[in-house]
Each structure stands twice: as structure tokens, then as C-alpha cells.
Write a protein that binds this DNA or RNA. Sequence first.
RNA 1: GGCGCUGUAGAACAGUGGUUAGUUCGGCGGGCUCUCAAUCCGCAAACCAGGGUUCAAUUCCCUGCAGCGCUACCA
Length: 482
Amino acid sequence: MSVRVRFAPSPTGELHIGGLRTALFNFLLARKHSGTFILRIEDTDRKRFDQHSADHIQQALRWAGLDWDEGPIFQSQRIEIYQKYSQELVDRGAAYPCFCTPERLEQMRKAQEAQKLPPRYDRRCRALSPRERNQFLVEGYPHTIRMMVPEGTTSFHDIVYGNITVRNQELDDQVLMRSDGYPTYHLGHLVDDHLMQITQVIRGEEWLPSTPKHVILYHAFGWEIPQLCHVPNILAGRGQGKLSKRHGAVSVIAYMQEGYLPQAVINFLALLGWSPGNDQEIFTMEELIQAFSLERVAHTGAIFNREKLNFTNGYYIRQTPLAELACQIKPYLVQAGQISAEDTIQQPFLLQALQTVQERMKTLSEAPDLLSFYFNPPEVPASLLVPKKSTMEEIRASLAGAISLLSTIEDFTAPVLEKALRQYTVENGLATARVLWPIRAALTGKEASPGAFEVLQVLGKDESLRRLEKALTVLDSPKTLD
RNA sequence: GGCGCUGUAGAACAGUGGUUAGUUCGGCGGGCUCUCAAUCCGCAAACCAGGGUUCAAUUCCCUGCAGCGCUACCA
């Protein structure tokens, strides 16, 4: 039997980073077994439904490279199906209509909590006689359909957590159909998983406690139970609970916008709560597909570690071919006003400039800042031009010498410049820092930047000399020194 | 409160009834060096606690504690 799995988010917001990992695990399993990956949108809660979420979820999945084979299927378009199966449950005596009002249910819960009892439906409508039931139905009282939890215990096997058994007395008579005619998750997902012939249900750990109810439902229908697999949540930090909006960026779209590469996010997420069993840390999607197995998914919630994501992202940025990276940073440069949308990014000046900062980037969004001095000549205070253990006079002299040397060089390329400047330091008995630091500072206006030779080359002779001369005048007017 | 799941360095994961308990990020130190980054070398850093079982327990069992989840006409 071929593998059929699904990712079934509810469109109540943008795709969450934890949701993406659940989707990833489903995707990997499907691809590994040449199976089918289905996207199903569980939009049965009309109160929480958000029109744009479904689009955002799809956009995020595509960005991450998790293309689905079937769907998106919207549950809201299938309510007759759920109604039919809920009726079947009623006919089989596994479910019953409940006429209790929300007000009564709330009162009951409060009373139970006050007595420190577990809040649970008191099953009042279970006891209705057929006649009463019919009468309420005929008179059109709003009602829900509740499942009828039987006596005994319920057991199931989970791929990650192993065998689990619970006493049915711990289970509530869960609402299956709301009074508005829409199913709840418990009925909706189960009917669909059956109809879509899902072979492995891979979902968040938060569903583990309600899985026994689902098992009871499968039995009531007489359906085969798919393999069940719950994956732990992603946590925000020690004692901070599940990663959520209040812990900063959790939306996949937000990571996309911040300039994280999809390969990096996927690689990072895969290793968060799963391991291949060896020491490999860097994976292509293809390698993940080969190595993946549900059995090796961890059973503890993993804390989301931004530092490691940054490292992984930096690694992938370094691996990206220059021309490709240029395309990826273009939107950021445009947004920063450093280039216009019509400009081509594939020009020597930009490519060379980018090359000098490529290994310093953790995210694409850092590009404008790292590259800023290439676009705008910096204001450089005298204090920045003078390295430690040097005086302003010494720097003035060495910079002036360097300027006259550089103005004689025609082949303004890094190797040539390096050779000439190093020779200059040796001949004049100058420490390298005394020559190169002020040059680099004058060109970039930054304490930390790419090296002097490469910046000289990228900026070119004219612009470089212009900036160096300007720095010299700054050193000539002592008042600018701190 | 009840029920369930889970506890290996700061973080993510390996691993084992007898090991110098491993890898990656992060931290610290060093090399390189015009700064930062990258890269290279090195260091520190963990088996939640208490009971069992056993010749031997981080590993198996129990209890405690802690974390997480669920406890809705939300998913």
C-alpha cells in the first residue's frame, strides 16, 4: 500500500514555524516512499477563519519547497460528507444529539471546577428517551452531535511514543458536529483521513490526549486505523511553553522576509526534534528524504535556537553562487533605496561588492547595511581613522604616503594593491596596521568591514582616492578628533 | 486539580547494563590578520533527585520533582 500523508493546518493565521516542521516530516515521508503528500485546509471553525491564511500557508509551503500532490482541499466545502457520517454514527448508536445550551455547559463546568472535579459533560442528553429526542429534533432546537464514549479502556500504538492506554472514564463525550452544522476537528479530520486513504497521521503532540477518542471513532465506523505519529512541539525557551507569537517571529513568512534561505530553514527544522543517528549536520532536501524516518523523531519538545538557525543560514549563504545570491538580495537593496527596481543586479560593481560581504552575512536582510559604504561615501571621524597605539600625526603621514603611492597604480586590483602597499610598509618601516587600518576606515567608515585591498578594488581608483583625500583633510582639522 | 507524554552540557541531537559519554550551535582561549567575518587548533561544559533490580545503572523498574501538552459547539 502506497504512502499517503497529509498536512492539515487550520487557516487561523500565517503558517507557524512548528507547523512547517510537521509539514516537512509529512513531506519527507511521502517523498521517501514515493507516496502522496496532500494539503488539506481545516477551515471548519467559522469564528476563527481568516481569509488570507490559506493563501499564506500555501505560499510558505511553496517557498520552503514542500510541494503537495493533492489539494488544497477545503473542509468547508465538504460539510454534507461530515453530516452524513455523523448521522451514521448516530444510527450506529455511537453518537447522540445534545440539546444543552452553551450557557448550561458553562455553568456546569464552573460548578465542576469549584468542586475540583475534572470538567466534563455530564451526559445528560445521553439519557434522553427516543421520544424526547425526536420531539426536540422536530421542534428544531439547536443541537450538537456528541460521541458516545463506551466503557473500558482504549489502546493504540504511536510511532514516536509507543503504546498508550487510557481509561475511557477519562474521556469526554466530545462534540462531533456543532450546532451550526460544521464538524469539529475530531470528526472532520477522521472522516477525511479515511476517505483520502491516509496511511500515516503525522501531527503535533497536542493531539496525543485526544487520540483515544479518535480510535474509538475508528472502531465505531469499523474503519482501519492509520499509523499514528505525534511529533513534539517546538518550545520558545525554558519555562516559556510552546513557541508562539509572543516570543517574536514564528511565522514562516516572517523568516522569509528576514532573509532566511529555505534550505537553511528546512535543514535547521529537520534537525530540531529529529536526528539521522549519525553526525551529519548539513543536508540537502534529497539527503533528508533518504535519511528520514519517523522512528528517529525525538519525544521531547525542542527549544527553538535562533543562533543555530543563523549559523545554518550563514552557511547556506556562503554556499550560494554569487549571481544567485545577488538576485536574492536585490529586493533588500531596492527597499533600502540603494538601487532601483529597474537596475540590473548582475553588474560587476555590485557582484564584486557582494562578494566581499558574502561570508559576513547571516541573513539576506543584512545586505543593505553591510554594503552601505559602497553606495554612499561615509562620514569618517578622525578618531576612527587612527588605530590604537598610533598618533594622528603618524597616521596623517602614512596615509599621505599611501595616497601618493596609490595614485601611481594603474592596475587597481587587489593582488597588485596588496603587493604595493605591503612593500610600502616595509620600505618605510611601518606597522601594517598603521597603513591599512586608516585606508580601510576611510573607505568604509566602519570599524568592521571587508579588507582594505578588496574594497579598494571594488570602489575603483577614482572613488578610493576621493575618500582617502577626504580622510586626509579630516586629519588636518584637529577639532574633529574626540 | 485530573489525565497523558518527556527528562544526557546554555541549545539541538547521538550513545551505552561495564566507554576517556560523542557531534553541531553557542561560550572561552589561541593561530591567521588591516578590523570583522570565514577558516584552523585547543579548552570548559551534561547523564534531574531518591530508592530499588544487578557483580555492575546515565542506560531497566518505582517514587518524587521539573518541563510540555490536553482538560472548548479552537484546532
